[in-house]
């Protein structure tokens, strides 16, 4: 998957998650903070997102330890190989 495709997949999953929770889906940009107040994504949602990305992309960048990230753009980069 290209970086653009990964980014699009992340945005799609986040939007779907917010929709399922009955929350408004704001505009998401690479600078949007994944766990920031703007979105309403919590740690279980993030774990779900990472699980879904592993299913789609085939690997889990957090398998060998924690990696710091804040924004949607930074999360995308972790999946680029």
């Amino acid at each position: 998957m290209t970086e653009d495709q990964i980014y699009a997949a992340i945005v799609e999953i986040i939007s779907q998650t917010l929709d399922d929770k009955g929350l408004d889906v704001p505009e998401i940009t690479p600078a949007t903070e994944v766990l920031g107040d703007e979105l309403g994504i919590d740690s279980l949602d993030l774990a779900t997102l990472v699980s879904e990305l592993e299913k789609k992309i085939g690997f889990d960048p957090f398998a060998k330890g924690f990696i710091e990230f804040k924004t949607v753009g930074e999360l995308t980069k972790l999946y680029v190989r």
Partner: peptide, 10 residues
């Protein structure tokens, strides 16, 4: 297992 369960669509 929980990763698989969480990634399953409702």
């Amino acid at each position: 297992a929980s990763k698989v369960m969480l990634a399953q669509k409702p």
